[in-house]
Simulated scan of single mutants.
Amino acid sequence: MRIVDWSDGADGGPAVVLLDQRALPHRTEYLQLTTVDAVVDAIRSLAVRGAPSLGVAGAFGVALAAHRHADDPARVRAEAERIARARPTAVPLALGAHRALARLDDGAPAVLADARAVAADAARVNAAATSRAADLLEAGCPGRPVRLLTLCNTGDLACGEGGSALGAALRLHERGALAEVLACETRPLLQGARLTVWELARAGAPHRLCVDSAGPAALATGLVDAVVVGADRIAANGDVANKIGTYMLACAAARSGVPFLVVAPEETVDPHTPAGAGIVVEERAADEVTGFGGVSTTLPGTPVFNPAFDVTPAELVSAIVTEHRVWSPADVAAARPPASRVG
């Protein structure tokens, strides 16, 4: 399944190819993006989403700029910055764009080669992180299959081949060690209902769908062994920015004594952001909340608060699992003197 790819384009010239995630689960449609404007629009409109997939899209977008404007390196650099800023919260988008841009002096083919390397590296990273996370989850439930709760979408669609948090669940399924994934629908754009359920169904993995606010109830009534989520940015202290609703689940998991795991690439950890207060949280358009499917669900002109992400404090995170390590920021946070935790 191609999520983000490249086409040399016999007729229309080079293009970035995207599986349009806005059309799922009912239609499988691909976009052929032949301009940087189209790439930026696809990123902002969530035709491609998920931090690692955004990194791949960003790299291929810069490759497109390098091919389209081979005689104007200043314009390529400007286009790369525009791509990198298209969504501010996710770390991999800017990293992917800047990594590809670093090869600009070597020519457009070199930029494209590095974009392809970003995609290949994502698959290797995902394989290592999901295997480590599956081992950890399986060890926590010896002798029986694991029951998981997740939010948003963290499979191949969001992360490239192998996924992250959902990828860990699917590794358990491959081992015969998954009892069920309880997938939150993920308002307002239903990435859980549309995308996570689609990926679970394709894999034949046992699952149920629930409204976001049912997640804490599932935790409180003992239906869940662990919460697994991804991350768009992780501060140096272990505070985690992820899809809105994550903080709610982390609070409920802590109250119920259920482990809360974050599965994400090491590159998502931002050493330049000391704590979650420094993470820029994208706020999206009001119409994502005021209606659905072209039907208004509230009064016209209703003011809206629509953050795409929230920040979960490190002390609520049982473990962050990357391709390199298992990190327990809750332990680090608990060891700090109280004064150091203010703010």
Score class of each variant (00 low, 15 high):
residue 333 A to Y: 11
residue 303 P to W: 14
residue 33 L to I: 06
residue 312 T to Q: 02
residue 95 L to E: 06
residue 73 P to W: 14
residue 160 G to D: 10
residue 312 T to S: 13
residue 48 V to D: 04
residue 222 G to R: 10
residue 1 M to S: 10
residue 325 R to A: 15
residue 91 V to I: 14
residue 158 A to I: 00
residue 162 G to C: 11
residue 93 L to H: 03
residue 231 A to R: 04
residue 33 L to R: 02
residue 274 P to H: 08
residue 96 G to Q: 05
residue 298 T to N: 03
residue 17 V to E: 07
residue 56 V to M: 12
residue 93 L to Y: 04
residue 32 Q to N: 10
residue 60 F to H: 09
residue 134 A to H: 04
residue 109 P to C: 06
residue 218 A to V: 01
residue 254 A to L: 12
residue 328 S to P: 08
residue 66 A to M: 07
residue 270 D to Y: 10
residue 258 V to M: 07
residue 105 D to T: 15
residue 326 V to P: 07
residue 323 E to Q: 13
residue 336 R to N: 09
residue 136 L to G: 04
residue 200 L to A: 06
residue 205 A to D: 06
residue 23 A to D: 07
residue 244 I to P: 00
residue 280 V to E: 15
residue 59 A to H: 07
residue 267 E to N: 10
residue 167 G to E: 06
residue 290 T to I: 09
residue 69 H to K: 01
residue 151 L to A: 01
residue 92 P to N: 15
residue 240 V to Y: 01
residue 81 E to I: 01
residue 93 L to G: 05
residue 127 A to T: 14
residue 217 A to M: 07
residue 59 A to M: 03
residue 83 I to L: 08
residue 43 I to T: 03
residue 120 A to I: 05
residue 295 V to Y: 13
residue 235 A to L: 10
residue 46 L to E: 05
residue 122 A to F: 01
residue 327 W to D: 05
residue 55 G to S: 06
residue 182 L to E: 00
residue 219 L to W: 02
residue 301 G to F: 14
residue 121 D to G: 09
residue 303 P to I: 13
residue 232 D to S: 09
residue 199 E to S: 06
residue 233 R to P: 03
residue 327 W to Q: 09
residue 293 G to W: 15
residue 238 G to V: 09
residue 10 A to D: 13
residue 188 P to S: 04
residue 246 T to S: 11
residue 2 R to S: 11
residue 329 P to M: 04
residue 252 A to T: 02
residue 187 R to S: 07
residue 110 A to D: 03
residue 5 D to N: 11
residue 31 L to N: 02
residue 100 A to P: 02
residue 271 P to M: 10
residue 93 L to P: 09
residue 92 P to T: 11
residue 181 V to R: 00
residue 247 Y to M: 02
residue 337 P to E: 13
residue 110 A to K: 06
residue 211 V to I: 14
residue 334 A to E: 14
residue 8 D to E: 14
residue 319 A to E: 04
residue 41 D to Y: 07
residue 198 W to T: 07
residue 71 D to W: 10
residue 59 A to T: 09
residue 127 A to P: 00
residue 20 D to R: 04
residue 313 P to R: 12
residue 236 A to K: 09
